[in-house]
């Protein structure tokens, strides 16, 4: 097996106000280099929190979490985050900056040379299927929802991070655009060979995009499987997700 790049070891996260019910508890998970992990769960299952622990937008309350072999608490927060790409449903492009300025922000903060920044901008824009020359000077408000999300992904990839965290990246898109971007995501994931942790509540998206699916319920990992084996899982929450997806498929027929 390849190297472990992220390792959760009995991780717990709780907000001090409600110690009775931690948001995450007993979470252990090894994520290998180049995997695409789909964190699947209902709203409030703790999947987004798990993601935010990795780049320390939240700080775990007990246990151990290693990123690239080093405890997240020992990482300099800023250094850690600049090595990890982050994509969210709302995209969060800066409205006062052009597409190029948005995408090139982290490389610029990292003091790359202008030539290297421009070259990288063109590279990542091609990766996400947007013409860099045509869109460089546009502002986010001039983009469609799908284009915004593509630019968001380009921005996350700009500094060539080894890890990419994605929180329901396609959740706000219309079904056609979503399917389109999911297909492109698959091609992209193969090409860039990054470790990707993707949060979703859509079982079909998890099975389509993940090389491994991790199922969360009420702050605990209840199952881990390959997409192929997922339908054989017996845990009640897994059966519920499978039933829900079949209900949608059945209705379609």
């Amino acid at each position: 097996m390849t190297d472990i790049i992220i390792e959760f070891n009995d991780v717990e996260y709780q907000v001090s106000a409600t110690p009775a019910r931690p948001i995450l508890s007993g979470v252990s998970l090894q994520i290998h280099q180049g995997e695409t992990i789909a964190l699947l769960g209902r709203s409030g299952s703790g999947k987004t929190t798990m993601l935010k622990l990795i780049n320390r937008l939240r700080c775990l309350t007990s246990g151990k979490l290693l990123v690239e072999g080093q405890d997240v608490r020992d990482w300099d927060r800023i250094r850690l985050r600049r090595r990890i790409g982050y994509v969210i449903q709302e995209v969060g492009l800066f409205p006062h900056l052009t597409v190029q300025e948005n995408v090139s922000l982290v490389p610029a903060l990292e003091n790359w040379s202008p030539a290297r920044i421009n070259q990288r901008f063109a590279e990542v824009m091609h990766l996400v299927g947007i013409d860099p020359a045509e869109y460089a000077a546009r502002y986010p408000r001039e983009l469609s929802g799908g284009q915004k999300q593509r630019v968001g992904v380009a921005r996350a990839l700009a500094a060539d991070p080894a890890i990419l965290l994605m929180d329901e990246p396609f959740g706000a898109l219309d079904p056609v655009t979503r399917a389109e971007l999911q297909q492109e995501f698959l091609a992209l994931a193969r090409r860039v060979s990054k470790t990707i942790v993707l949060v979703t509540h859509d079982v079909r998206e998890a099975l389509l995009l993940g090389t491994r699916v991790v199922l969360l319920d009420a702050g605990r990992i209840v199952a881990e499987s390959t997409p192929l084996e997922f339908r054989q899982l017996q845990q009640p929450i897994a059966r519920q997700f499978i039933a829900a997806s079949e209900l949608v498929a059945g209705a379609a027929q």
């Binding site: 937008l57 600049r82 969210i88 969060g92 492009l93 903060l109 965290l165």
Partner: peptide, 18 residues
Amino acid sequence: IDPAILEAAEAMGMTEPQ
């Protein structure tokens, strides 16, 4: 400020003054 913009900024490794 739109919380998504601030979250993106923080997650990209911008410092507080930045």
